[in-house]
Amino acid sequence: MIQISKLIKTYENGDNKLYALNDISFEIKDGDFAVIVGASGSGKSTLLNTISGLEKADSGSIMHDGKEIFGLNDKELTAFRRARVGFIFQAYYLLPSLSVEANIKMGAALAGNNEAAGIIEAVGLNGKEKRLPHQLSGGEQQRVSIARALAKKPAALFCDEPTGALDEATGRQILKYLIQIQRESKLTLIMVTHNSNIANLATQIIKMSSGKVVEIIKNPEPSDIDKIGW
């Protein structure tokens, strides 16, 4: 379970203090699919980065399965990320000089194995394991980045606009795949998106505005990917 309590993060802007996150508290249960929605600049990416240990908060508490990560130093945060979390970004960030297989090994190696074959098959990239990222379509690259994240066997998967750079059809495919994996493996999935339609797929919707959580909606019956607008 991820428990966030009274989280505050500020940025200096000249003489002003800008609250990127202002007194945020909520919980995400294990195996939940939480979506963070809000307009540009509402603080949703900062929230995702802070919960996942990519950025540090000014104050508050971030508990992952009872372990506090607020206040950890860089070395401890690295160890935390290594052991517990996976990431998927809008821009994929695949290592450009490495093949699909080697990119997936990046995640697999951290889970203690150097085999990528099984996961390549699972993401439907059979026959493309020796290709380099630039030889793949956007959707395929995002599949590799999903495979890389899953190969790490994370307890929680953090996704920042994973379909932001994709067309509707590919975006739907990717989401379908992610949700399927999340449900099958009971993975905790936390996703940031500006697309409010995607929110209907989640079991928990966290709405943000100006650095604050303005609404938390529990959604026990999430929609089907084929039934939502885009």
Binding site: L95, A102, M106, A109, L132
Partner: peptide
């Protein structure tokens, strides 16, 4: 964006038994 030369492409196409960090 980083360009990938032909030698790297050839090496990657062949595949390898190296660990991730050795491959990198």
């Amino acid at each position: 964006e980083i360009r990938i030369n032909k030698l790297t492409q050839r090496l990657q196409t062949k595949g390898s038994k190296f660990t991730f960090l050795e491959e990198l």
